[in-house]
């Protein structure tokens, strides 16, 4: 949960260094968080940052963008990200400031993408390629994955949560299908959006898959039984509570979102 102590730095963020340039993958929850990442890059290489990749619209992943804004930097995101930013950007700045405090938010602003991924995009960092794939609605409706071919590392953004309960802000059916599909994709490791900085694949997807399956099953049962959306939100998914952080903060919300989707089946 973003707060004054963590200054909004709650997501996994990072970078990949090629022979000619650096790609940043998510920039953190504030300008200050982004500057921290920039310093970490500078400690490793003098090469310029040529790409900033935003895996999705949520503030904890993109509010550090301003730390990297400048000439020669391309901001890359899912084709739906501009629309999502339009709906949430200003709102996010406000509410995030209330959470982390105005001081931590100093310098933070919305930097929209300059290059959109419609389907697949290959970025060349000089002898090192990143493959970006725009995914269908799942965690949100603007999720992007990044695959680093050199190390077989899959950056999932918030398409995979570890430790922190998955937060549904897109499509439950889409996310279930995509979690299972990603688990079929060979990778040496993933970098999840939340949890440890890297995790073995596909094992790291199992707990999320189980939670989403349980949530969907419970919701379908509640819908069949004619339960109201409020009744369903109070109970669905709670059997998978163990082992997740912030379960109480997000499970009911996930159930509401899932109900409103599955009632159309």
């Amino acid at each position: 949960m973003p707060d004054g102590d963590n200054r909004g730095a709650i997501a996994n963020i990072g970078f990949v260094i090629g022979a000619e340039g650096v790609a940043v993958i998510d920039t953190g929850g504030s300008y200050c968080d982004g500057m921290g990442l920039k310093a970490a890059i500078r400690a490793r290489t003098a090469l310029p940052v040529t790409y900033v990749i935003n895996t999705h619209v949520h503030p904890d992943h993109i509010f550090g963008n301003a730390a990297f804004a400048g000439e020669g930097v391309s901001f890359v995101a899912h084709r739906n990200l501009p629309r999502a930013l339009g709906e949430r950007g200003e709102h996010g700045l406000q509410s995030y400031a209330e959470q982390v405090g105005p001081e931590a938010m100093q310098g933070t602003k919305i930097i929209p993408p300059t290059e959109l991924v419609t389907d697949t995009l290959r970025l060349d960092l000089g002898g090192r390629a990143l493959v970006l794939i725009a995914r269908p609605a799942a965690h949100t409706d603007a999720d992007l994955t990044v695959f680093d071919e050199a190390t077989a590392t899959l950056w999932t953004g918030d398409l995979i949560f570890l430790d922190h309960i998955p937060v549904l802000d897109g499509s439950l059916k889409g996310w279930l299908a995509l979690t299972a599909a990603l688990m079929q994709q060979p990778a040496a490791r993933i970098v999840p959006g939340h949890g440890p900085p890297s995790a073995p694949w596909p094992e790291a997807g199992e707990k999320q898959l189980r939670y989403l399956q349980r949530l969907a099953e419970d919701l379908r049962g509640a819908i069949r039984a004619g339960k109201s959306i409020s009744e369903a939100a109070a109970v669905c998914g709670t059997g998978e509570k163990d082992g997740w952080q912030l379960f109480g903060a997000y499970n009911s919300r996930n159930a509401l979102t899932g109900f409103a989707e599955l009632e159309w089946d």
């Binding site: 406000q94 509410s95 609605a137």
Partner: peptide, 15 residues
């Protein structure tokens, strides 16, 4: 409203 206010945004506008 949750957490001050999460944006009242669409979930899956394409659909």
């Amino acid at each position: 409203a949750s957490g001050g206010c999460s944006a009242p945004a669409s979930k899956n506008a394409d659909e």
